[in-house]
Simulated scan of single mutants.
Amino acid sequence: MTALPLAFGAPLLDAIIRSVPEDFQVDELPAFEASGEGEHLLLEIRKRGANTVAVAKRLAQWAGVAEMGVSYAGQKDRHAVTTQRFSVHLPKRVAPDLALLESDEIHVLASTWHNRKLQRGALAGNRFRLVLRQVQGERGAIDERLRTIAARGLPNWFGEQRFGRDGGNVPAALQMFAGRRMRRDQRSMLLSAARSALFNRVLAARVEQGCWDVALDGEVWVLDGSRSVFGPEPMNDALAERLAHFDIHPSGPLWGAGELRSTGKALELEQAALADEQALALRVGLEQAGLKQERRALRLRPASMQHAWLQDDALELSFALPPGCYATAVLHELGSVVEAQRP
């Protein structure tokens, strides 16, 4: 993300993160209450130093079911302490001893029955508690930048997780579009990376032009907290008020087949940002893969954002983000935050 522009001026700090897993804590915000009945055991699990897929495999072994019988709403970081839900399909409603799951990596916080399998994306968002260490930078300026982010929001970048190690997912997507065969799970990941790269290009152009959080002629709007879109329609006082109160956000394209919904200046900017040879190859590949045009909000406002200095060089941040939004977008607006080296 270091190549992406900044919305609020020059970087203010250098810091490290994930010195220990506890410095990166994520709690899933559930999207629904469990029904209390059914044949799917819903588990709330805190994991430390383990990735979501590994925990799902452990649950399948514990329950004696196929891996496809275990589901989760979203993947969480490995080098972190995270809380998330899993569902395990147990048609006979007989669960093995939960104590058998306990380890240094897995702790079961709660369990209950539910009448449906946990679907991907079935979460209301994520709450983060991050600790930056070895912070170098002027404290007053950092405080002010964080207050600005809390009040104004920030660009809704797709984070570096989408693009793989050293950003290799986009080149791999181009190879796939050129005819290289990929496994189904790889294909899905690479399609997402290609779409995300094109969205970030449009957002970068709007950040550079200072219009990522204001209306352009021909703007398409996204309702806050949903995927519902409307417009374009002429700007008026009612839309301006909704924009100011974060009820709606300007949007950018998630590429696929079909015409861009934007018009006027918004359309011109999107077309210009996606006109080079690589962008054209990604666009064609996504269209031929059968994806359809969709939209994503260009602006993000973290909820309940707070910060505190634990020491002169240790800064704690806490905030909540909607599904599909990245904590790295917040860190990007502060400066250079790199992961601590691990053995």
Rank of each mutant, 00 (worst) to 15 (best):
S251G: 04
S251I: 05
G252P: 00
G252Q: 02
P253E: 03
P253N: 02
L254Q: 08
W255H: 03
G256N: 04
G256M: 06
G256R: 05
A257R: 09
A257H: 04
G258E: 06
E259F: 07
E259D: 12
E259Y: 02
E259A: 14
L260A: 03
R261M: 14
R261A: 13
S262R: 13
S262P: 11
S262G: 12
T263C: 07
G264I: 15
G264Y: 12
G264E: 15
G264W: 13
K265Y: 04
K265N: 12
K265F: 05
A266S: 15
L267R: 15
L267E: 14
L267T: 11
E268F: 03
E268Q: 15
E268V: 13
E268R: 15
E270S: 11
A273R: 01
A273Y: 01
A273L: 10
A273W: 00
A273M: 00
L274I: 01
L274T: 12
L274F: 02
L274P: 02
A275Y: 06
A275G: 03
D276P: 05
D276I: 07
D276Q: 03
D276N: 11
E277Q: 13
E277H: 09
E277R: 12
Q278I: 11
Q278H: 09
A279N: 01
A279Q: 04
L280H: 02
A281C: 03
A281Y: 00
A281E: 08
L282G: 00
L282W: 00
L282V: 08
V284T: 08
